[in-house]
């Protein structure tokens, strides 16, 4: 069945076509962003960096970028700290409702984005959190938490607890044991979780669309409105920046995770 050369050749052609289908839409924004023209014509007839100049100087784009970066940093810190604490606690405890709590931590991943968005919008409207930094931080933290707990739980599952007992028997306090024994060992998992948390917040569109106000927009929301309402090639530069940031961080996350496996 593996044999037939005709079959192999057909499959190889299909593989190439699928590769083009997956790669081209991902990378086309890069040459487009260096177009010297004010249109989406491809291939561009002239080249330039004017779209980057606009992106980094025009108020609405720059503000959106800064909002997204600040938000992602805050969410990363909050979600990583809370998620690591929770993963640690859940890995060390056995109680009756544990299955339910585990499910709670995975739920934001499973529930469709639009459902999360509408539910949060309805509630946040009543609580005065729409268009506020707090609203964005808590919403993105909810979405980012699962990535932290999943990664830290995975790191803790291969953890040899005799190391902790050894430290404790030598007189280390619980906190000292955690800081100087447990944390260094699970650090790759924590780091991977943090990177995923950052990208989750930085890339999030649907929930942010509902929580935004004219005064507070994230970069993906600004991009979304740009695609729907205007023909502004600046979005090509924005896409390239987002692409580079999120791909670099996810790559880093996958490297840290691989290191952990080998360690």
């Amino acid at each position: 069945m593996t044999g037939s050369p005709v079959l192999r050749r057909t499959l190889a052609v299909l593989g190439v076509l699928v590769g083009v289908w997956l790669v081209v839409p991902t990378l086309i924004v890069v040459p487009l962003s260096f177009s010297g023209e004010d249109s989406f014509a491809f291939p561009p007839r002239s080249w330039g960096v004017q779209h980057y100049v606009t992106f980094f100087t025009e108020q609405s784009w720059l503000t959106a970028l800064l909002v997204s970066l600040q938000l992602a940093v805050i969410v990363t810190v909050v979600a990583t700290v809370l998620g690591t604490m929770a993963a640690f606690a859940l890995a060390r405890s056995r109680f009756r409702a544990k299955g339910a709590v585990d499910g709670l931590f995975l739920a934001p991943l499973i529930v469709p984005g639009i459902v999360v968005a509408v539910a949060m919008y309805a509630a946040f409207l009543g609580w005065g959190l729409i268009g506020t930094p707090t609203g964005f931080v808590v919403a993105h933290t909810v979405l980012a938490l699962p990535f932290v707990t999943v990664n830290v739980t995975a790191a803790l599952s291969g953890f040899d607890r005799t190391l902790e007992r050894a430290a404790a028997s030598l007189g280390a306090s619980a906190w000292a044991t955690f800081r100087s024994v447990t944390l260094p060992i699970i650090r790759p998992g924590v780091l991977a979780g943090a990177l995923f948390a950052f990208v989750t917040s930085f890339d999030e569109v649907v929930v942010s669309m509902f929580l935004q106000s004219p005064n507070l927009q994230t970069l993906p929301v600004r991009m979304f409105t740009s695609v729907t309402n205007e023909v502004d090639p600046t979005i090509a530069a924005a896409s390239t920046v987002v692409l580079v940031v999120s791909t670099a961080l996810l790559g880093l996350a996958s490297v840290t995770r691989r290191n952990r496996r080998h360690a």
Binding site: M85, A86, L90, R92, P108, A123
Partner: peptide, 23 residues
């Protein structure tokens, strides 16, 4: 140790479960 999970659980319950139930 279990108390360490409380902040995350509170965030998820208040800002995710409660909104879902409200909806």
């Amino acid at each position: 140790t279990l108390l360490l999970a409380v902040p995350a659980v509170v965030v998820l319950v208040v800002f995710f479960v409660v909104p879902a139930l409200r909806l």
